[in-house]
Amino acid sequence: MESRAVPQDEISTHTNTRKAIYATDCNGAYGIVPSSGWEVEAEVTLQAVDELVRLASEAYDKVVTGVASPLYFYMFARRMDLDILAQASGIGKWWLKRHMRPDVFAKLPHKTVARYADALGMEVEALYQLPEKRPERA
């Protein structure tokens, strides 16, 4: 790719940072050209982010209707899935799934909830309630 063909689409996903792209100058010599992004990249990044928001908002509804515990919502809100949260908290998947039930979650010892809170990077108390706003896709 020639340096003048390096996209400068100022995509929103980059926010204030440019990416180093290798491209050739008019003599064919390679160098780094900072790029403010390519719309192709924005397309796929936003697609992935949208999917995560979709999962989080569906989880939000399940918690509101009493089908799942808040832990279920926060797992998706932190862009995790069962595997990632199980590994990050060190609590097995079988247990994790059980703790997604509101009645089971409500009775969990503080110690266990603290492990989840730590893995999710939040305070223990906050893990018991949903945020006021349902996550929405941009």
Partner: peptide
């Protein structure tokens, strides 16, 4: 999502293009 994932691995994650 699968198609988008390919492009993300190719372009988004810092590969120099």
């Amino acid at each position: 999502l699968f198609l988008g994932h390919i492009v993300r691995m190719q372009e988004e994650i810092g590969t120099g293009g």
